[in-house]
Write a protein that binds this DNA or RNA. Structure first.
Lengths: 240, 240
DNA sequence: CGGGTTTTTGAATTTTATCAATGGCTGTGG
DNA sequence: CCACAGCCATTGATAAAATTCAAAAACCCG
């Protein structure tokens, strides 16, 4: 309790792999150091289309994706949906603590998550130097990603949005050591549309266009091979 | 240094006025408690259209707006611009620490800011219990606001975007104790357009429509009187 | 008061959405 | 194992929304 400071920002090391995973383990619960408050965490299987939480729920837990992909979205009263982010294994959901969830989260496919009571997070913040700092950096990264998406939604064409979406998946794969140009899309066209602020039809038409210009190849509905990454990048940032 | 913990999230009080202002003062530098590392802060006058920082600059400082409004934006290579947020007096810019600025900030009108070296922020985090917690909550709020804007950009019509924009200004004024339905818009139509992902012409046309339906009244180009707040809210969330 | 900028308005065009129908994949039960 | 049902994706035709191009009007600052 006495040594519970969060490290000064200027002394933070450059982010490479998520530092929070040092406390939370990569993907397996066996990696959680006991004695840090994690005796209270639990795993939960979430089937496809099942919700993790709903907008307005009290934020009693933070979640870490262990398997599968979780979509976080907001709704308008008439049903229009905006997916604000997709969360992949290893990532934390609910870092932003405002008391109540401001959006809903549902599994896009069969998934597994670790549920971390806020109390346990508090304990880590209070007892583990650097944990608060790590959370702050993750939160900063999430804000940065969201602002990047604002640029996409506000200023890019349908084609540029789709290209940007896929480029970012390729980059994330590369960061995670997956050096393949085949990308897996666990979400439906409709979910991609709701993430990019488009309709299913527009998404589909632009997949077709990219296919016809041999920038990508559709191996199946959920597997895309990027044939020309640099061209896809050029399309993504509007310099094509 | 010994008591430098950040408060557990579950013990955070409900946000009313920004807690960081307890350390930074409301708007006047005289309110800064000395001895907290703030001997190193400085004030800076920023004239209209002058930049506070540019994308790619090293994040050596955090800034607090003292007077005026600062626009934070991202650019595409061909010049398309997306303004990601407007910052008003009292607000902090650069809470998100990723090493380098991922966007640019410029004064929309003549402004004054306090420049806070990151070292000074580090000192506060390390010595003032609750400061890190306060920063985390502000960061969470900023993420929440940005996600709300994602919903606007991705799923709302031009008219709904404009109504949402003005409703949020009315609400912010109300939060700050300004109980007037007259709102001041220090930014140009072009800047509003770049914030809402629209063109100047579309913004102007929708101002005219709102005027014709007597929801608002344009006192001048920069002063709008909201005649029917509940109707504006209905338009904003698509239930009109 | 004047000049330059900003805002508004109009007409034509482009982009994306909507409506409608077909095609294709998957998983299940006969 | 095959047929079928249901969902998902694609394609086409049309409509709506917003952009673009162009010009006039209003505003603001010196």
């Amino acid at each position: 309790m006495l040594n519970s400071q969060i490290k000064p920002i200027s002394q933070q090391p450059a982010a490479t792999t998520g530092p929070v995973s040092d406390w939370l383990g990569e993907t397996r619960s066996s990696q959680i150091p006991v004695g840090l408050g994690f005796r209270t965490t639990s795993e939960r299987a979430v089937s496809a289309h099942e919700h993790v939480y709903l907008e307005g729920d009290a934020q009693t837990h933070m979640y870490q994706v262990l398997e599968g992909v979780i979509g976080v979205y907001k709704l308008l009263t008439d049903g229009r949906r905006q997916i604000v982010t997709f969360h992949y294994p290893g990532e934390l959901i609910g870092l932003d603590q405002t008391g109540y969830f401001i959006d809903s989260a549902e599994a896009l496919c069969s998934a597994r998550i670790r549920c971390i009571p806020i109390d346990a997070v508090d304990t880590l913040i209070a007892t583990e130097p650097g944990f608060g700092q790590a959370m702050m950096r993750l939160l900063s990264t999430e804000l940065a990603d969201t602002r990047e998406q604002l640029l996409s939604l506000g200023r890019k064409s349908a084609m540029e949005k789709l290209a940007t979406f896929m480029v970012r998946i390729v980059m994330r794969n590369k960061r995670n050591g997956i050096d393949s140009n085949s990308i897996h899309l666990p979400m439906t066209r409709s979910e991609i549309a709701d993430y990019l602020g488009l309709t299913v039809e527009t998404v589909s038409r632009n997949f077709t266009k990219l296919k016809e210009s041999t920038v990508i190849r559709l191996c199946s509905n959920s597997v895309v091979e990027v044939l020309d990454v640099s061209r896809l990048e050029a399309i993504a940032d509007g310099s094509a």
